[in-house]
């Protein structure tokens, strides 16, 4: 009896401590998600003064919407283009920055710098770089005797241009996680391996890389979710154009909600995005987690 009471007291104490963050979580995360979920089954656009329940009509319409499929495919390509490359680049940069003997802090700063710059500013910088005729890239291509290219104005190029920019922007950020991860690997392990005469590739493959797996996992999830969350550059650079060639899911949601004023459809799109991200996170956590060593 007394034990039960003591236990209850301990639990209550824990709950009380959790209460503030719990309230905020409920208020600003769960409640809106639930509201969005409910709204996604309603017609709530400019044509309907009062929202009314319309079942899965929004989802049906979405399936038939070419633009939806286009932005979804775009987003998948965007993720495939940015996630592995930026993560690999981050790892390479971290290994280099960690090994560098001279100018260590300069190299780190140089790598990290793009991360500190706000996405809006980055977009403006790259807007200039990609400008045809007198943009920085145009000049470089001129030196190589290549013709001018309209990077942002052409459907075939625009996605590559975006992917490249985002990799540049993100890799430095992920590098910081890898640097921290590398610091956590005991120097003794490397000394031990060097006693055995392991080549640096073997050391990387058999020691460094597996021990960085938790970092890789974490960074991959961040990178993947970022590939769905990062759309600021679209506002500045292309507005999703030309003809949706650079449009991404979140920007399309924004357009649907605040330009088309179709709240119902925007909610349905949001739910799709939330489910998508949850699935990926779940796969990464439950599927890959077992193969990863955690200290």
């Amino acid at each position: 009896m007394g034990e039960l009471r003591a236990k209850w007291k301990v639990n209550m104490y824990a709950w009380l401590l959790l209460l503030p963050s719990l309230i905020f979580l409920l208020l600003f995360t769960f409640y809106p998600v639930i509201q969005t979920f409910i709204l996604s089954f309603h017609q709530a656009d400019l044509g309907s003064p009062e929202p009314f329940f319309n079942g899965i009509d929004n989802y049906k319409q979405m399936v038939e919407d070419e633009v939806f499929w286009k932005v979804l495919t775009n987003n998948i390509w965007f993720a495939i283009g940015t996630v592995p490359t930026s993560v690999a680049l981050a790892l390479a940069m971290a290994l280099f920055a960690n090994k560098a003997i001279r100018g260590k802090s300069f190299i780190r700063t140089a790598y990290f710098y793009p991360t500190v710059v706000p996405m809006i500013a980055v977009a403006n910088i790259w807007l200039f770089i990609y400008t045809p005729e007198y943009g920085a890239l145009s000049h470089v291509m001129e030196w190589f005797g290549k013709g001018d290219m309209n990077w942002l104005g052409d459907q075939k190029n625009v996605m590559w241009a975006m992917i490249f920019m985002v990799i540049w922007k993100e890799a430095g950020y992920f590098m910081i996680f890898y640097l921290a991860g590398l610091q956590n690997i005991s120097q003794e392990l490397y000394e031990s391996a060097s006693m055995e005469g392991a080549s640096s590739w073997t050391v990387f493959r058999r020691i460094t890389f597996p021990l960085l797996m938790p970092t890789t996992m974490f960074v991959s999830i961040i990178a993947f979710t970022n590939s769905f969350k990062l759309v600021d550059h679209l506002v500045i650079m292309t507005k999703g154009g030309p003809d949706n060639a650079s449009n991404l899911l979140l920007y399309y949601i924004y357009e649907t909600a605040f330009s088309f004023w179709d709240q119902g459809m925007a909610s349905a799109l949001t739910i799709v995005m939330v489910v998508l991200l949850l699935l990926v996170a779940a796969f990464q956590f439950f599927g890959m987690d077992k193969k990863i060593h955690y200290n």
């Binding site: 807007l127 400008t131 045809p132 005729e133 007198y134 942002l152 104005g153 052409d154 030309p242």
Partner: peptide, 13 residues
Amino acid sequence: PEGVNEWATVPSD
């Protein structure tokens, strides 16, 4: 120029 001509770039051009 071919392709999309950027709204903000045209005056600079």
